[in-house]
Design a protein around this nucleic acid. Sequence first.
DNA 1: TGACGTCACTCGTACTAACGAGTGATGACT
DNA 2: AGTCATCACTCGTTAGTACGAGTGACGTCA
Lengths: 259, 259
Amino acid sequence: MSEIQRPGALYRQVAAAIRDAIASGEYPPGAPLPSEAQLIERYQVSRPTVRNAVAALRSEGLLEVIHGKGSFVRGASSPVVTIDRSVSQDDGGAFTTEGAAEWEEVEEPHIYRTHTNAVTGPQLGLREDEALFGVDRLLIDTTTATRVLHQTLIPFATAEGTDLAEHPGTEPARIYALLAAAGHTLWWSETVRARMPLPDERTSLQLQDATPLLETTRVTHGTKDHPLILEVLRTSADRAQLAYRITPDPTPKLRATRT
Amino acid sequence: MSEIQRPGALYRQVAAAIRDAIASGEYPPGAPLPSEAQLIERYQVSRPTVRNAVAALRSEGLLEVIHGKGSFVRGASSPVVTIDRSVSQDDGGAFTTEGAAEWEEVEEPHIYRTHTNAVTGPQLGLREDEALFGVDRLLIDTTTATRVLHQTLIPFATAEGTDLAEHPGTEPARIYALLAAAGHTLWWSETVRARMPLPDERTSLQLQDATPLLETTRVTHGTKDHPLILEVLRTSADRAQLAYRITPDPTPKLRATRT
DNA sequence: TGACGTCACTCGTACTAACGAGTGATGACT
DNA sequence: AGTCATCACTCGTTAGTACGAGTGACGTCA
């Protein structure tokens, strides 16, 4: 072996050596790494050790391995799409949720009835087992092919007396307009988290290895004291980032929450 | 073997069987999994296969493995701390960035000089290689021990003529107050992304396996046409989530960006 | 009683070996 | 010329084996 020696496990040394080689530009983004056989030769280690090292780099998101072809350097994955989470309202009262123009539904939205659970109940200010409409959408950005899972949960209490009871599959921006027309002054609170995807999320969002999931939960508040709508958006952290616009809030913090 | 059979690789079948066992409550969160030797016995496979299966579940964030003790079920990790990213301003003009009361600096902030690069330049509306002050902080939430890395980048052009040129290590909320006092009307744009941590981020934030990093970038805008300050916040997606407050924006979207 | 060494148990690392499976190019056959 | 079988190369999976290293309990010895 040439450049490896000190720290701990052999495979970590090999991983570090490869990491350095990538950082030094020896293997630029997109370039193929030497094959396992060549790495075995170069570092004079066994195949399990090489595979262990490659696996480590893969879990760091540094490599992409394609069966039958080889390992490739995955350039610093910077998000491709910026999803603007601010909400605009034009003179006519119509709302624009950024992206409405860019995203396209690939399938019919899945509309169903469900109930609040231990998570969604508190978020909506409801007890558990309260009736909800649910709408699941799979959206795809037409230019970048970025996929987004979008779920809308509408309490019966919110839908009652509006068009929503008949057409829960209405698009969010129209729902906002509906609620505003019903006399609500709307504002939203949103939380953002990230986690590793579940197996089914990996497939439906077509996530690569070591790609976290970005998940944002938006609660629509109206003039009444309890929340009106719950929306959850899930997408690949590799492909998308979220954008917010913040203006100073004259009301001293009401929202110091802790779970 | 008992419950495993169909789909693809043996180790995936074993992983699925263990995943099901966890889901079924056979191994509740916090409980120890059978040892490797017992899993070998139970599923009648070799040790590499068992280890492969366990590694897969570990990378899903479902298991935590402790050397010398065993493997343990890691219950659905819901964030512990909510970081409110909205900004409040009281009558006296002082700003409150939520969390200021809860977070504590563990070390002296690291203050240095640096330059814009290909990423930070455009974000600040500057060319590359423009001079900046940099301030790095490691903050810890006193009640939950959640760690946060915070970086502030201040262009010389912003600091000039203000207290910042002398004291770049000023806290963000005070910087906002300073800029407001200098005649700026402030607003902020913020982007959120997630990715797997780099090795050094893993250690400084004490991240466990399969824990993504939440990273948010805040740009402070004033009355002038170019941005004033850049802040980057990094924390464990396992321990923290971000919160935003959204109000309808009368200006039709100016911010449809794409990188 | 207290300190410490030992031991049994756990996972971590490393090697050899063999075969399966995906990919792409080459070349023969129609 | 076009189609398709083959082959070489890549990574994927599995088995078997050995020893290193961290942890905690137990028992011995002072």
